[in-house]
């Protein structure tokens, strides 16, 4: 297996309908598939475990940022892991994108590769969604001093040394900006890579709304 030294981290919260398919696609192509079930009440943990993932369970719902931090800390206890990949459970990411990003990281000796849906024209996002996401990017760039084109993209490749510098304290949505900030502070080389997000009806029903953007702004301002 080409990516034996990779742990794919999937935060899961009430995704029983889709998580098994997502995990099944990942298992066998990456050394470790780690789901952190963030206190789901719909049997997501059993579904993910049956599909072949290692499942860690939060006893109570804390938020995606907290789940991601738990997944990172678990992955760092696995001695054979060199790269961590963060991957959303709702099926909007493509495994092939993750593999391309890993190849890029290995080839160019990059510590961090961020997925961006705005580097090419494949991803079809609505006008309002674009506006929300672009605002989030702008706020993130202001506070991190980095120049990203897409801040709230769940697909990232993080090398082990960079992952050790991540200590997320924003339990809810604002963690996406926080992780960029902390990865930027490591001073390690990074790059963006174009990815294609599939906006299925399912992912749309759970996606970013305008209200969510307000929440993100508040969490970032009053932390």
């Amino acid at each position: 297996m080409a990516n034996e030294d990779v742990a794919v981290l999937v935060p899961v919260y009430n995704e029983a309908r889709v998580v098994a398919d997502v995990v099944a696609e990942l298992v066998g192509r990456f050394g470790h598939v780690v789901c952190v079930d963030d206190g789901s009440t719909d049997g997501s943990d059993a579904a993910a475990r049956a599909a072949g993932a290692t499942v860690l369970r939060h006893a109570t719902n804390l938020g995606q940022g907290a789940a991601l931090q738990t997944a990172i800390e678990h992955a760092l206890t696995l001695p054979d892991v060199s790269y961590l990949v963060t991957f959303d459970a709702d099926g909007q990411h493509q495994v092939s994108d993750a593999e391309e990003m890993l190849e890029l990281a290995r080839r160019e000796d990059l510590a961090i590769v961020f997925g961006s849906r705005f580097l090419d024209e494949r991803t079809q996002a609505g006008l309002l969604k674009k506006l929300v996401l672009k605002t989030a990017v702008w706020v993130t760039n202001q506070s991190t001093g980095m120049r990203l084109t897409d801040a709230h993209n769940g697909l990232r490749v993080i090398r082990r040394d960079a992952a050790a510098g991540v200590h997320l304290t924003q339990n809810r949505m604002a963690h996406a900006s926080e992780i960029v900030l902390q990865l930027g502070r490591t001073g390690l080389p990074w790059r963006e890579h174009p990815v294609h997000l599939l906006y299925t009806d399912y992912s749309k029903s759970k996606g970013q709304s305008l209200l969510n953007a307000v929440n993100i702004l508040f969490e970032l301002t009053f932390r």
Binding site: V36, T54, L56, R57, H58, A59, T60, L62, A66, Q69, T70, E73, H74, T77, T169, N171
Partner: peptide, 18 residues
């Protein structure tokens, strides 16, 4: 208190996995 709950929940999840 939220920070404490987060730390506790995380420690529990990591220990169970271990």
């Amino acid at each position: 208190m939220n920070r404490q709950i987060t730390a506790l929940t995380r420690a529990l999840a990591l220990t169970q996995a271990q």
